[in-house]
Structure formats: structure tokens, C-alpha cells
């Protein structure tokens, strides 16, 4: 599903060049749930931005769903983000002035889906994350867990190739966190490719595979021995 080959990222600040990523290469197969782990400063955010096409690498090639992205212009990247990537952020990033339903509709507006279809799809997605009773609530009327589920519904509306979840449980209590992980695992079981960025050991064990970063390099890339099934837990332990 995605192939990273010799990806590097350098930040230039005057004469000082800082290497955030050094020669990163790995593949993610379709239907995998991969956790990217690492402490702050390890480069995992930078890597996530590159995978999410929010930032460009300095060197190397990145192929997403058979599309080579390194030479694309900004408009093309925006289009790709819209169609191939579903973002779930730590801080939800819902627009505060519009309802849950309208938030979920938003990505559809940027690919000219007809308004009638938008509402249909958005309703279906919100229902699938268990929020059919919250269509017309504004984000500030929802709990943290509900907000993150709205964000997941938003990530799903364009049926993306991958879901990119950046610390999705970071701002949630353990019960809501567990619900979010359960939804992500369920999506994965249905065949969605998911990349989960986290710094929590326990959360990462919900994945099939863990890639550990340290100082911009991959220090571990291994399958998870005892994968945790969120649906069998009460809470998300930290």
C-alpha cells in the first residue's frame, strides 16, 4: 500500500543542517495496522507528515497506493490527501462552528461530491462510529471520545487508502481511548490500512507491527507478539 525508500528530511537553519530523518525505508502492506513509535524528537511526527503528504522529504521516494508522490505539485498533493488519506489528529481538529454532520461532510466538499450524496455518506459514517444520535451537535457539545469518533468518521468519508492516526488517544480518558482503539481495530479487520503514531507502548500493542524510531532512524521493525484486542478490554491502560 505504501513504500518508503531512503527517505531523508533535513531542516536548514542558517548554516546548521539538522537531520530529522535519516534513510528511512519500509513498506506497509494493504490491510496492515502499523504503529510508529518513538520518543519526542525521534522524528516520528516528521515521518507522519511525510506519509500524510503534509510535508515533502528532502530525499528518497514515497509511493502511496502505487502513486509516486515525490515530484507532485501542491494542488496534486492536496487532491491526493483528499482521496487517499484519512487523518485522525490528537486534538481532533473539528471546525467549531459547524455540526458534527457538517464536519464529516467537509472532505466531500473538496472533491465536488453532490450535496445530497454528501449528507448520505456523512450520516452513514457517523452512524458507523456510533454517533447517529449526534448529527446536529456542535463539537463543543460532544465529549472528547465523541469528537474523536466524529474525526474518524470524517477520515473515512472518501474511503481512503490509509488512515493516519496521530496519537488518537492522547487527549482521551482511558475509556474513550479504548473505544477509539476498538473502532480503529474494527476498521482494520474490515481491511483498512492504518498507521498509528504513538509514544505509548501499550497503545502500540494494538497494532500488527511496530516501527520504532530514534534520532531519525528506524531502530526496530517487528511484528507484535501478543496483539491486544481492544474489544476485550474495559479501558485503555497507559
Amino acid at each position: 500500500m505504501l513504500k518508503l525508500k531512503n527517505i531523508t528530511k533535513d531542516y536548514v537553519n542558517g548554516d546548521v543542517v539538522t537531520s530529522a530523518l535519516k534513510d528511512i525505508s519500509f513498506d506497509v502492506e494493504e490491510g496492515e495496522l502499523v504503529a510508529i513509535m518513538g520518543p519526542s524528537g525521534s522524528g516520528k511526527s516528521t515521518l507522519m507528515h511525510i506519509i500524510g503528504l503534509l510535508d515533502k522529504s528532502t530525499g528518497g521516494t514515497y509511493t502511496l497506493d502505487k502513486v509516486e508522490t515525490s515530484l507532485m505539485n501542491e494542488d496534486k498533493l492536496a487532491q491526493l490527501r483528499n482521496q487517499k488519506i484519512g487523518f485522525v489528529f490528537q486534538s481532533f481538529n473539528l471546525l467549531p462552528r459547524i455540526t458534527a454532520l457538517e464536519n464529516v461532510e467537509l472532505p466531500l466538499a473538496y472533491n465536488s461530491t453532490a450535496p445530497k450524496d454528501r449528507i448520505k455518506i456523512a450520516r452513514r459514517m457517523l452512524s458507523s462510529v456510533g454517533l447517529s444520535h449526534r448529527f446536529h451537535h456542535f463539537p463543543n457539545q460532544l465529549s472528547g471520545g465523541e469528537r474523536q469518533r466524529v474525526a474518524i468518521a470524517r477520515a473515512l468519508v472518501n474511503d481512503p487508502a490509509i488512515i493516519l492516526a496521530d496519537e488518537p488517544t492522547g487527549n482521551l480518558d482511558s475509556k474513550s481511548g479504548k473505544q477509539v482503539m476498538e473502532i480503529l481495530q474494527k476498521l482494520n479487520n474490515d481491511g483498512k490500512t492504518i498507521i498509528l503514531v504513538t509514544h505509548e507502548e501499550y497503545t502500540s500493542k494494538h497494532a500488527d507491527r511496530i516501527i520504532k524510531l530514534l534520532d531519525g532512524k528506524i531502530v526496530m521493525d517487528a511484528r507484535v507478539e501478543e496483539k491486544i484486542d481492544a474489544s476485550k478490554e474495559d479501558t485503555l491502560r497507559k
Binding site: 492536496a78 487532491q79 487523518f87 481538529n93 472532505p107 473538496y110 470524517r154
Partner: peptide, 15 residues
């Protein structure tokens, strides 16, 4: 932040 989010979910500079 709203601009960032809109761009992340597919808004072009022109949008």
C-alpha cells in the same frame, strides 16, 4: 488551525 485542517483534508491553495 482551520486553514491547516482544510488543507489536510484536501483544500488547495486556490480553495
Amino acid at each position: 488551525k482551520e486553514i491547516g485542517l482544510r488543507k489536510a483534508i484536501g483544500a488547495t491553495n486556490k480553495n
